[in-house]
């Protein structure tokens, strides 16, 4: 089981996520928000490109995103792995999309990552608990 402390007085649940490069040799750790309202994890295209992925590749599937402000299309890249709370999930689909910098994050941790866990949000202790589903 993984336990992550988060700031229970913050407006959002901020986490650090490690994203593994396309050659598997290094990672970038980014601030994201846990978002159970997002089907898919979202990261900026330029960060994925820096990690060696090709978000502009014409062969990538483009996913229709229904957002609060309308419908947008974004390419979906499969990253080697994401790591959160010490738990690593391999081959995760990530939508390439820039969120406004004013939110103080680089992306969203969506349900396609979270569905690998039973997880609880404990506001009383400011902790998230993740149990990996075997």
């Amino acid at each position: 089981m993984a336990t992550i402390e988060f700031g229970s007085n913050e407006k959002l649940i901020f986490l650090d996520v490690g994203v593994t490069s396309s050659d598997g040799s290094w990672r970038i750790y980014l601030p994201v928000v846990l978002d159970t309202g997002a089907t898919t994890t979202i990261l900026p295209a330029d960060i994925l490109a820096a990690l060696g992925y090709d978000p502009g590749h014409p062969g990538l599937p483009r996913i229709r995103m229904i957002t609060g402000s309308g419908i947008e299309y974004a390419p979906c890249v499969t990253v080697k792995s994401l790591i959160v709370g010490g738990e690593e999930i391999v081959n995760v689909g990530v939508l390439c999309h820039d969120l406004p910098a004013e939110a103080g994050i680089d992306g969203l941790l969506g349900l396609n990552f979270l569905k690998n866990f039973d997880f609880t949000v404990e506001y009383s202790s400011g902790r998230l608990r993740f149990i990996k589903i075997q």
């Binding site: 290094w26 970038i28 601030p31 939110a103 103080g104 994050i105």
Partner: peptide, 13 residues
């Protein structure tokens, strides 16, 4: 820069 990196935002909403 080569190798592992991290981005931190020090502000608040």
């Amino acid at each position: 820069f080569k190798g592992n990196k991290a981005i931190v935002f020090t502000g608040k909403i």
